[in-house]
Design a binder for these strands. Structure first.
Length: 477
RNA sequence: GAUUCCGUAGCUCAGCGGUAGAGCAUCUGACUUUUAAUCAGAGGGUCGUGGGUUCAAAUCCCACCGGGAUCACCA
């Protein structure tokens, strides 16, 4: 800094005219032979990642890749050469010069003009090992991104996956909408909400746990195909699969049912997998290879539980009897659990972890699906499915319940569960029921957890690796 | 929330009762077609914080702070 100021150089200037990106140059001059010099002058800008021979060779990295800079007394005035000596690893500079390939085979720009564009006054982490400390990775993501190509690639893929989802939906005439993040009644899912307060209205508000009930109001309003990609907030534990704020895409399609939603799930996920995986549907995740090629099998929850435990719960209608059977299978269920909760608990305990390849788990119990339509052939089930990959729930969808009387009854059942101490039971949203009373078309609804999808498609073992700034405890530095 | 592991220089790590260490980075110099450049030298530390045990603590014990993993809740 002092060296620059002594020379009257602004370490933080305003602009630099970039004419070329590193990756484009590497591609354009791929056939340039070793030792060959072009007549092409280019201007590049980026961060100094390494320097050799007292700054004669500099590795410059921009957002696309790396290019070598060569500074020599033959092409640079003595004062600029002297100034180059004081540039540090981490500094952001702009360079103008002739493109050539060195005899050693490195594409290089012979600097004729060099400008400081943004001084780094702190040293960059060690170049070879990069950042390993997970706390630094998450708290100072910018350092992780500067140092680790793997992290840069993960976030590029995240962006590409979301872009593809948007493209597919838009191409199928879905309209992207925005619904409130601040809800007077948290609805659309079973979860503990974050609570806040609006001063002017002197009103309690909740950060949304799901956009579902508002998106359905838009369906009632006549927008037949809507989707929203945005954050949900749930005041629950943090783990490798859970962050308090996470991103979902929720999609609603009028006149469709859950079968249509299964096909849509497959189109979206398969397309996303190909988009970030060189057109391939097979993706490596940890020890496993997952093949996203559609179509995916469909299995009912009850039939998978039967396969795993030899017990057919469709034949045990009584909740108490089902709970007793669960106990015999070594599965703990809450006191007073209803039939659906028992089946779900056994499924979670005995089946979930085995579902590595994509599979739709269909026909979930009515007891645990208060917003889904009753199954057309079985009154204790709903037309709901959850798609599992790698043992994780990745999508959740149903033929949406559009009968206001049934919806009110389901809400009331939830309220009773809440009074019995189930904190995550859903709240009665009378305004939503009123909206249903104006008539909602038969509708298929689908939600996909974007973070988990990105994890699966980038071989990331923690959700914190796919969220740029994951939630961490505050620390006074 | 419970259990468990971890926290030493800007970064990656070693040291694990007896004078605080290495590599990279930084600074000085040499070299001037290198690419984890090389060579010589220099500076850089409240060993997460606070207590305790001990003649002596980075090292052993306790509490707290921060992080990871597993479990519970959940997507």
């Amino acid at each position: 800094m002092k060296q620059l100021q002594v020379r009257g150089i602004n370490p933080f200037p305003y602009r630099f005219a970039v004419s070329a990106m590193a990756a484009d140059l590497q591609k354009k001059y791929a056939d340039l032979k070793n030792g060959e010099v072009t007549k092409d002058t280019v201007s590049v800008a980026g961060r100094i990642m390494a320097h050799r021979n007292s700054g004669m060779f500099v590795d410059l990295r921009d957002t696309t890749g790396k290019i070598q800079i060569f500074s020599h007394k033959q092409s640079l005035p003595a004062d600029v050469l002297e100034q180059m000596k004081h540039y540090d690893i981490g500094d952001i500079i702009g360079v103008t010069g002739i493109v050539r390939r060195t005899p050693a085979g490195e594409l290089t720009i012979n600097a004729e003009k060099v400008e400081m564009l943004g001084k780094s006054v702190r040293p960059l982490p060690e170049k070879y090992h990069g950042i390993h400390d997970t706390e630094i990775k998450y708290r100072q993501r910018y350092l992780d991104l500067i140092m680790n190509e793997e992290s840069r690639e993960t976030f590029r893929k995240r962006s590409a996956i979301i872009a593809v989802i948007r493209q597919v939906l838009t191409a199928e005439s879905f309209m992207e909408v925005e619904t409130p993040m601040l809800h007077p009644i948290p609805g659309g899912a079973s979860a503990k909400p974050f609570v806040t307060h609006h001063n002017a209205l002197d009103m309690k508000l909740f950060l949304r746990i799901a956009p579902e009930l508002y998106l359905k109001r838009l369906i009632i309003g006549g927008f037949d195909r809507v989707f929203e990609i945005n954050r949900c907030f749930r005041n629950e534990g943090i783990s490798v699969k859970h962050n308090p704020e996470f991103t979902s895409v929720e999609i609603y399609q009028a006149y469709a049912d859950y079968n249509d939603m299964m096909a849509l799930t497959e189109r979206l996920v398969e397309t996303a997998a190909k988009a970030v995986n060189g057109g391939q549907t097979k993706v490596k995740f940890g020890e496993n290879e997952i093949d996203f090629k559609a179509p995916w099998p469909r299995k009912t929850m009850v039939e998978l539980v039967k396969e795993a435990t030899k017990v057919d719960f469709s034949k045990i209608a009584d909740a108490a009897e089902a709970a007793k059977k669960a106990g015999e299978l070594g599965v703990h269920v809450k006191d007073g659990a209803n039939w659906g909760e028992v089946v779900e608990a056994i499924f979670a305990e005995k089946v979930e972890d085995t579902l590595i390849q994509p599979v739709h788990i269909i026909d979930l119990p009515k007891d645990i699906s208060p917003l889904a339509k009753v199954h057309r052939t079985d009154a204790q089930l709903t037309e709901r499915f959850e798609t599992y990959v790698n043992g994780w729930e990745v999508a959740n969808a149903f033929s949406e319940l559009n009968d206001p009387f049934d919806q009110l009854a389901r809400f009331k059942a939830q309220m009773e569960a809440r009074e019995k101490g189930n904190e995550e039971a859903q709240m009665l949203d009378e305004d939503f029921v009123e909206a249903l009373e104006y008539g909602m078309p038969p509708t298929g609804g689908l939600g996909i957890g974007i973070d988990r999808l990105v994890m699966l498609l980038t071989n990331s073992q923690s959700i914190r690796d796919v969220i740029a700034f994951p939630t961490l405890r505050h620390t006074a530095k």
